[in-house]
Simulated scan of single mutants.
Amino acid sequence: MHKFLLLGGDSRQLYLSRILSENGFFNVLHSGGDDPDFSLKEAMENCDIILCPIPFTRDKISLSSEHVISNLGIGDLLSHLTSNHILFGGSIPSYVKEYARKNEIGCFDYMDMEDVTIKNTIATAEGAIAEAIRLSPGCLHQSKCLITGFGRCARTLALKLKGLDLTITIAGRKANQLALASSMGFQTVLLCDLEKEIGRYDFIFNTIPALVIPEELVSLAARTATIIDIASAPGGVDFEACRQQGIRAKLCLGLPGIYAPETSAKILYEAILTCLSETV
């Protein structure tokens, strides 16, 4: 039977460890504090499945963790990986994937798994809505909302917000995405035309990982607007311009791990078992 080593991460790793235990799998969790008795080398020698966090790293030096852990450098991890290991993680850097390929190490990126990303859009959308409610002094009900982008997360978010009786406009560059948004009952606008429209929205949700709401657009937005950015870091909003204009704005990363860690862990567990069954 497989033995699992969980390294770094947030509370998703904790729940994933519990789920593994409940299903009879041996696992070691190292996600917080510098335990002087912990040896990465020994732990990896005793486990064949290495479960790294989402995201894999934030600083490109060590595995990401919500707690300070000084002994989880990526270099150390790679030096102990062998062809007997299978590596999992989210947003795994290309050089780590290449190292795994060259050394015949199984490597699976959660972000490359369609089922994981689609299921996680639900927690991301619910978390984004929760952040908007927390940040704004007003109600979502009957507010005017702009969502930039219409990918997987944006579509789920739009449908959730539609159920809360917001008037929703989708902004994008691609005609096919805007056509789909229109067919689903949403208003649409081209990103290049936002300067004419952005001032009328109470809530703005960005899902595009590029600077699509720069200083020029921020200056045209309503001072009472609330901006929630759920794109990958550094997001797509000029937050310094928002601060200078007095507009409430927040980059919200890792929402599934914050708002639905147990559900997210179940999604990862199912994906891991599926991948392992396919490697046999």
Rank of each mutant, 00 (worst) to 15 (best):
S94L: 15
K162L: 15
E131T: 11
P53Q: 08
V212G: 02
G246W: 14
K162A: 15
A225P: 06
S91Q: 09
V96R: 02
T156P: 01
V218E: 11
I69F: 02
D165L: 15
V218F: 11
F88P: 02
D48P: 07
T82P: 03
L157K: 04
V96K: 02
I69V: 15
G138K: 07
S17G: 02
R18F: 04
P137V: 01
L81C: 12
I168T: 10
N84C: 09
R12A: 03
L164C: 12
N27A: 07
I61C: 11
L190C: 06
I74G: 05
G149N: 01
G151V: 09
P214H: 15
F150A: 04
T274K: 10
L191P: 00
N27I: 01
M111W: 11
L220I: 10
I92P: 00
P209W: 03
R200Q: 14
N71G: 04
D115G: 13
V237A: 03
D37E: 09
N46A: 10
G89V: 12
K160N: 12
L164P: 15
A171K: 06
I50D: 02
I227C: 09
A260V: 11
V189E: 02
I208N: 03
S143P: 02
R173I: 07
P261K: 10
D34L: 04
R223D: 05
I247F: 01
D59T: 12
S83H: 14
R18W: 05
L255H: 09
F108C: 13
G8I: 04
G246D: 12
L251A: 06
Y99G: 00
H2D: 15
N103I: 05
S94N: 14
F38T: 03
H85G: 06
D76M: 05
I92R: 03
S31G: 15
S21F: 06
H30V: 08
D35S: 07
G32H: 08
R200L: 08
V280S: 08
T148A: 11
I49M: 14
